[in-house]
Every structure is written in structure tokens, then in C-alpha cells.
Amino acid sequence: MKGTIRRYLRLTGMLMKMKISRDMVYSLNFWIAFVVDLLLFLFLLLSFTFVYRYTDSINGWTLPQIIVFMGTFTIVDGLGMGTWFFGIISLPEKIRTGALDMRITKPVDTQFLVSAESFNPGSFLGPVAGAFIVRYGMKAGNFALTPEKLAGYLLLVLMMYLLMYSLSLLVMTCAFFFVKIDALIQAEESAVEFAFRIPGTAFRGAAKFVFMVLIPYGLIATVPTQFLTAGLNWGQGAAVTAITLFFVTATRLFFRFGLSRYSSAGG
């Protein structure tokens, strides 16, 4: 077990090294994605600031909490973009063209290989910027930051990172069964957009069930923010853990099932 973990960490390092040396060839892309993301954040922040001129809270959340919320999303999203995003987003293409074939023949977990082969080093600036944003929000709202809070927050961020990864892979894995999944991908993209723009506290009733449990994109930035700025009770913590575990496991099983149904295009 320990040997396996070390081996996969080494492999991860190797893949990251290769991607960095590759990206040096296209150094402009490295920065522009970051600048674009930051700009989007700025405009969203402005939008919320203007909205808060007319209200004090959105279902209990103040403006500083919204700032922490957006910072948290920037962290989770940046981590994902830097690691698994570009590998996963091209999975349907790899399935359609049969490019997955060579990857299956490698003596490494195929899900790992597909997820870890397209690092995007430029995106790691996202989490750095996100950390500053969170810190700014914490100061603006006078929230106390204890070491325990920080540790719990980081743990939750890690969990939400895994959740977002699983949800995205779950959608892309459908490409094993259907020729075209453009509509599903579009739905997924919209869901991510909402996860960024709408604080989870806004969800009520049926919408809450849909976005917190069924397709829990609503949890991603909300849960760590809630923990850091207001606190979670044990029940909420357990529910979030259960949902995350469920989707991580379900995705893993679904991917394996998809792989066993892979019919490899061409020839």
C-alpha cells in the first residue's frame, strides 16, 4: 500500500515535470488564463458589492462571507484546473477517437493516468490568489482564524476538490456509453458556473436538495466557507463527508464499468 502510494506520487511528479517543460514552449498561455480568471473574480466581486448596497445579507451571509466564498471557489477550481481538468475534459474525445487504447495498455490505474496526464501549471496561481482573497474576506468580516479552523478548512477544501473531480469525471464517463454527450457537458459547465456565482445559502427547498445532495455542486465553495466563517455542526459535517465519499466511490465504480464497456473506435 505504502509502496503503491509512493509510486503514484513519483508518477505524478514525473507527469507534472513533463507538462511544465512542455508548457515552456507556449509560455503565453501560462499567464493569460490566470489573468482572465482574476478579471472574472473582480467583476463578480463588484457585482456582489453593488448588490449588498441594497441588502445586508443573502439568506444569512454577509458580503465578507461572499468574498470568502468566491476565494474558496478560486482555490478549489484552480487546484482542479491545475491537476485533473484538462485530462478529464478530453476524455470523451479520447474515447471517440480510440486514443484511450494506448493508455489502457499501461500498467497503471487508467483512471489515474487519464486524470493526471494533463497538468496545467499556470492554473496553480489560482489557489494562491484565492488564498489572498479568503484572507481579505476574513479580515473584512472580523472572523477569527485559529489553527484548528485552518486545518479543518483545508481538509474541507481537499474534500470538495475530490467531490468536484468526481462529479466532472462522472459526466465525462458517460462518453463510454453515448456517442455525443455535448448536452451533458453543457449542463456540467453551467453547474460549475452556478457553484461559483450563487452562494449555497441561497438554495431552499427542492433546489437545496438538488444542488446540495443530488448534484452537489452547491456544496463546493459553500461548505468550507460556512465552516470558516460560521461553523458546521457534526451532522452537517457527517452529511458532507458521506456525500463526498458516495460520489468518489460511485465515480470510481462507474469509470470501471465504462472501461469494461469500452469498444475502442477504429479498426
Partner: peptide, 14 residues
């Protein structure tokens, strides 16, 4: 629909 959700929360009692 999502605008609906968000603005519902923003309007609150207003």
C-alpha cells in the same frame, strides 16, 4: 431559474 433562486434570497422580505 438560478437567477430566480439567487434573487429570491436577495429580496428576502424586500
Amino acid at each position: 431559474w438560478l437567477a430566480w433562486l439567487l434573487w429570491k434570497a436577495i429580496y428576502g422580505e424586500k
